[in-house]
Design a binder for these strands. Structure first.
Lengths: 184, 184
DNA sequence: ACCTGAACACCGTTCAAGT
DNA sequence: ACCTGAACACCGTTCAAGT
C-alpha cells in the first residue's frame, strides 16, 4: 500500500526515466564537457539523489552506451540521390558532423559502431558500394577504409570540411579505379 | 645545511626524476591500463608519497604530455628506401604500430601530433610527398589525409594489418593519380 | 517500485610543514 | 631542494533502509 501510494506520488511530480536521464546527460556534456558528466552531477541536474540513476542504468558505462546509441540514432542518413560517390560523400559527411559534435570519449565508441557490420550503420554504406560494383568482401574492406578515414579526419581537424573532402576524394578515386579494373 | 644533507641523502638512495616517473607511468599503463594511471598509484609504484611527483610535473596533464612525447620519440622512422609509395607505407605503418600500443586516451593525442606541422613528425611525410611531385600545399593536404586514415584505422581495428594496407593502397592510388595529372 | 542516506574506497590537488 | 602529511572537494558504487 505504501509502495503504491509513493509510486503514484513520484510519478505525478517527477518521474525519472532513461530518456530523461540521457537528455540531462547530453545537456551536461554540451554545457561543461566530458569531465562534468559524473553520476553525482547528473543526479544533481535531475534534482535527485545520486543513487536514483542506478535504477535505470546498471553503472556509468551502461549510461555511456545509451548516449552513444542515442547519438547513432540521430545520425542523419540523407536521401539516396546521385551516383555512388555522391551518396557515399553524403553519408560520410553526415557521420562526420555527428562525430564532430561529440567529445572524444564518445566519438571513439560511435566510430567503432560506424564500421561494425552488426551495428546497422554500416549497412547503407556497404549497399552503395555493392551497387557500384564491389563484391561483398571488397565492399566491406572499402567501407572500413572510408570509415577509418572519416573517424581519423574528425580526430585531427574536427571542423575543417575542405580537408576532409580532399582526402575523401582521393580515397574514392582509388576505390573507383579498383572497381573499374575489376569490371573489365 | 639541513637542506643540503637531506638532498644528498635522497640522491643516494632513490632520486626521483622525470624519466623515472615516466617509466613508472608506462609500466602502470602496460600492466593495468589507463584507469590505473593515477597520481596516487604512480607515487605508490615509486615508493613515494603522492605529492612528490608534483615536484617534476605541474599536474597530471603535464605528465600525460610527457608520455605522449616519449611515445612520439620511440616512433621508429625507418630508413628511406624504395619509391615514394613504399616509403610512405613504411612511415605510416611505423606510426600505426606505435599508436596501436597506446591506450585510446594517449592515441588521440599522439595522433594530433602526427599531423601537426609544427610537431616535427609530419616533416618526413611531407618531404616524401614533395619528392613525389606534390606542391607544398598539396603535400600538406595529402599528409593530413594519410594521417587521418592511419589514426582512424587504428581506432576501428588496431591489429588488422591487411585491412590497413587495403585502404592505404587505395588512398595512395588516388594521390598518385592526382600527382600524375598535375605533372602532365 | 522507486528513492534516500550513509558509507567505502578511491581520485587530483592545495597548502603548510618537515629534513 | 625535495619530500611529507593532512586536508579539501570531488569520484563510482555497495548496501540497508525508507515511503
Amino acid at each position: 500500500v505504501y509502495a503504491v501510494q509513493y509510486t503514484v506520488h513520484m510519478a505525478v511530480r517527477n518521474p525519472l526515466s532513461r530518456e530523461r536521464i540521457v537528455d540531462a546527460a547530453f545537456r551536461l556534456l554540451e554545457q561543461d564537457g566530458w569531465e562534468a558528466l559524473s553520476m553525482r552531477r547528473l543526479a544533481q541536474e535531475l534534482d535527485v539523489w545520486p543513487m536514483a540513476v542506478y535504477r535505470y542504468f546498471r553503472d556509468k558505462d551502461e549510461l555511456v552506451d545509451a548516449l552513444v546509441d542515442q547519438a547513432a540514432g540521430t545520425m542523419e542518413l540523407p536521401g539516396t540521390e546521385g551516383d555512388w560517390r555522391d551518396r557515399l560523400c553524403d553519408v560520410l559527411d553526415a557521420a562526420r558532423v555527428t562525430l564532430q559534435r561529440l567529445p572524444p570519449e564518445l566519438r571513439t565508441r560511435l566510430g567503432a559502431l560506424l564500421v561494425a557490420p552488426e551495428a546497422g550503420l554500416a549497412g547503407e554504406g556497404v549497399e552503395i558500394l555493392e551497387s557500384a560494383g564491389f563484391g561483398a568482401e571488397q565492399a566491406g574492406l572499402a567501407w572500413s577504409a572510408l570509415g577509418a578515414y572519416t573517424i581519423g579526419a574528425v580526430e585531427i581537424a574536427p571542423t575543417d570540411k575542405a580537408r576532409f573532402e580532399y582526402g575523401l576524394d582521393r580515397l574514392l578515386d582509388g576505390l573507383e579505379a579498383e572497381v573499374g579494373a575489376v569490371r573489365r
